[in-house]
Computed example of a mutant assay.
Amino acid sequence: MIRHAHEDAELLALARRYVMPERRYLKLGGNVLGMQSPEYDRFVRALGEDSRLITPHEIATLLEGGWRERRTAAWLIAVSRRTEFREQLGELLQASEVCCVGLAYCVALAGFGTPRDAELLAAYLDRYLRRPDLGYDQDVVMSALMLVDLNLGGDVASRFLGPSGLWHQYLNDAPHKRGAVDPAAHLSLIRRLCAFAEECAESR
């Protein structure tokens, strides 16, 4: 069950502390890459500091909230590299209960970058590439898996990208797709966001 900040005093307090200041939750949607100094530098330092200060219980509470809270929590996990949340992020990605969060989950998992993270990303693709009627996070998850493969020297993504793979079947059947989509299109975005998370971590 999703907790709602306007009905939950604990969650509301955490949202006011970590999510809402300077509309952080919106900037963490990818807009951060377009920020300029000194705003960018201030944002990096604040996110890095909060990733150090927030407790595991507070992160777990934010992950029970709506998309704003979950997006922010996933980023705080990515910056602090709290791999103990790996399985929960994988579960939340699979569940796809709320919108606007998949990219944050992908940044965290791609940043962890282990074979287990590749498995979690692949599990999502095994499920949702078979659902061309759902325009969820298939593109960014594929790109995140490709990045993990590149960093590990793995080939997990190849079974999806082959001529008879689920990726091409998904593109052919998805009504919201128009023509071929190169999954590498999002690869640069995922890589840049992972680098941003590392920059925030180094500022702590």
Rank of each mutant, 00 (worst) to 15 (best):
C106S: 15
S80G: 15
A15R: 09
R131V: 04
V107A: 01
R42Y: 03
T61E: 08
Y128C: 04
G111E: 08
L28W: 00
A13G: 11
G111M: 06
R71H: 11
P38S: 04
S96Y: 11
W75L: 09
V107T: 02
Q138T: 07
G29D: 03
D139C: 10
G65D: 01
R23F: 08
D133N: 11
G48I: 03
V101R: 02
A95H: 04
E64K: 13
V32M: 06
L109H: 04
S143N: 06
R42W: 03
L93K: 05
R81L: 09
L47E: 08
A144T: 07
S80H: 12
I77E: 05
R127H: 12
R17I: 00
E58R: 10
A144S: 14
M20E: 08
E119T: 14
L53I: 15
E97W: 06
C106V: 15
P115H: 11
L89Q: 04
R116I: 06
R116M: 10
S143D: 02
E69S: 08
L147Y: 03
A9P: 07
T61A: 12
E58G: 09
P56M: 04
L147E: 06
H57N: 14
D139N: 10
E49I: 12
Q94T: 10
V32R: 01
L125P: 03
E58Y: 06
E64Y: 05
H57Y: 14
A73H: 03
L121G: 01
M20I: 07
L12F: 10
T114W: 08
G113P: 04
A15G: 11
L11D: 00
D41C: 04
G30C: 06
Y124N: 02
V140K: 03
Y18R: 00
A78D: 05
I77Q: 08
G66T: 12
R42V: 03
G111F: 03
L134E: 13
V32F: 01
E39S: 05
V19D: 01
L89W: 02
E10L: 12
V19L: 02
E91M: 10
Y105P: 02
F112A: 06
P56Q: 05
